Simulated scan of single mutants.
Amino acid sequence: MAKETKGEPKELTVEQKLKTLFQLQTMVSEIDKIKTLRGELPLEVQDLEDEIIGLSTRIDKIKSEVDSLKSAIAGKRVEIETSKAAVDKYKSQQDNVRNNREYDFLTKEIEFQTLEIELCEKRIKEFSAEEQEKSAEVATSTAALNERQKDLDQKKSELEEIVSETKQEEEKLREKAKDLETKIEPRLLQSFKRIRKNSRNGLGIVYVQRDACGGCFNKIPPQRQLDIRSRKKVIVCEYCGRIMIDPELAGIQFEVKVEEVVATPTKRAPKRKMTDA
């Protein structure tokens, strides 16, 4: 006969497994309550951080466009000065022409450079208007960025306050939950986590309430109730898939209301009159 190795964990009975699983459910439910207490703050913080990154990127891009417009305006002003110098040059050359052909050529060059000046001035107006529009957009986006940053700082402060209040309690619960998980066989634990994940209220194991499943509240047949109370095997609700246990194993006691029965007076049979023989 093989001797039992010292320190080797004993295999839990089905009842012990179910009890341990219910204790784990209690721990993770408490952790869920802490998360609910934090509410949507973590998501709000994440959304604000993403929005701030988006605004910062947008502002940088617009500023780059403004710089490009300023460079373009400066370039057009240089072109204007070059064209003006060319006009002055051609006008001075007109005074010393030897024939009409040279005069006409210089006249056309002056007209061309004048048109170039007008076109550059038009472009400068367009670029300046666009630059003002972009600069105004930068100012608006910067103001929005500052507002979002204030909101983010406030939300982070609120979140940090809540986390600091619940961090210690959550860590203790997580440690207990982790310890309980080591006592449950991996297959059952994986099934429990899968059921819990697919459940709206996060319950993977429930106790029977008034002959019905504590998760979906569908009626449980009498024979199945006996199987649950016997604690010989893991019973799953055929409707919602949650693991079911009896209330006693969960430490729940329902109050049984005893209705007072009002005694109704019994009717006596009427006495028969004695007749003389």
Rank of each mutant, 00 (worst) to 15 (best):
K6T: 15
P9S: 09
K10G: 06
E11P: 02
L12G: 02
T13C: 02
T13I: 10
E15M: 07
K17E: 05
F22G: 02
L24D: 00
T26M: 03
V28C: 05
L37E: 15
G39H: 08
L43C: 05
L43D: 10
Q46H: 10
Q46S: 11
D47K: 05
I52G: 00
L55P: 01
S56Y: 06
S56R: 01
R58W: 04
I59T: 00
K61D: 13
E65C: 06
E65S: 12
E65Y: 12
V66Y: 06
D67L: 15
D67A: 14
S68T: 15
A72Y: 15
E79K: 14
S83C: 07
S83D: 08
K84Q: 15
A85S: 14
V87F: 11
D88K: 15
D88M: 05
Y90R: 04
Q93D: 11
N100F: 13
N100P: 02
N100Q: 07
D104E: 11
D104M: 07
F105W: 11
T107K: 12
K108F: 10
T114D: 07
L115R: 09
I117A: 01
E118I: 12
L119M: 13
K122D: 15
R123H: 06
R123V: 14
R123Y: 12
K125H: 07
F127V: 07
F127M: 14
E130H: 05
E130D: 09
Q132P: 02
K134A: 11
S135T: 14
A136R: 04
A136M: 10
S141Q: 11
L145P: 00
N146I: 12
N146S: 13
E147S: 08
E147G: 02
R148Y: 11
K150H: 07
L152K: 09
K156S: 13
L159Y: 09
L159Q: 13
L159N: 08
E161N: 14
V163H: 05
V163G: 04
S164L: 11
K167V: 14
Q168V: 10
E170S: 06
K172Y: 06
K178F: 09
D179V: 06
D179T: 14
L180K: 00
L180G: 03
L180P: 02
I184Y: 03
E185T: 05
R187A: 08
L189D: 04
R194I: 10
I195S: 01
I195K: 00
S199H: 05
S199R: 10
R200D: 02
N201K: 15
I205V: 03
V206E: 02
V208N: 00
R210K: 11
C213G: 06
G214R: 03
G215E: 04
F217N: 13
P222G: 09
S230T: 02
K232G: 07
I235R: 00
V236Q: 07
V236M: 04
Y239A: 12
C240R: 05
R242C: 03
R242P: 00
I243C: 05
I245F: 00
L249D: 01
I252N: 03
V256M: 12
K257M: 11
K257Y: 09
V261K: 03
T264N: 04
T264I: 08
T266Y: 00
R268Y: 06
A269H: 08
P270K: 15
P270S: 09
K273C: 09
K273F: 08
K273Y: 13
T275N: 01
